[in-house]
């Protein structure tokens, strides 16, 4: 490996942040179908993420919980492993209103990783 000196963010940048085996298990290998679902994921999860950020800023924790719950299955489906725990912590914190002070850290990770995932997908699939 040549990237020994890179900072944390750069390491995140380099590795693949998603894995399509779950999706392929559900819909098969047809590239057109995969592309359709990637598009759908990018659109819907971006919307959910934006709603989630708004709810967090407004300290509307029950909504944070239910939106995180919704996003959880998309994160799992797209094999975004580095967010498996994060999204569950956010869901639980929101629903049970616990560990609120640590939420901003989890939110920043969520936003960072999803941003990278979108970028990687756009490159990999020539999305507009």
């Amino acid at each position: 490996m040549v990237k020994l000196n890179l900072n944390k963010n750069n390491i995140m940048e380099e590795k693949m942040h998603y894995n399509l085996s779950n999706l392929k298990n559900m819909v098969g290998d047809d590239p057109d179908v995969i592309l359709e679902f990637i598009n759908l994921f990018v659109d819907t999860s971006a919307q959910t993420l934006s709603d989630l950020n708004n709810a967090h800023n407004a300290k509307d924790y029950p909504t944070v919980g239910s939106l995180a719950h919704k996003l959880k299955s998309s994160v799992d489906l797209m094999g975004i492993e580095s967010l498996y725990d994060t999204i569950r912590i956010i869901e639980r914190s929101g629903k049970e209103q616990i560990n609120i002070p640590s939420l901003p850290d989890h939110f920043s990770k969520l936003n960072d990783v999803l941003e990278i995932v979108y970028r990687q997908m756009k490159t990999d699939f020539n999305l507009k």
Binding site: L23, M26, V27, F37, L40, F41, T44, S45, K70, S73, S74, L77
Partner: peptide, 9 residues
């Protein structure tokens, strides 16, 4: 299913 992605899936 209200989650469009999962519903379509």
């Amino acid at each position: 299913e209200d989650d469009k992605l999962y519903g379509e899936l």
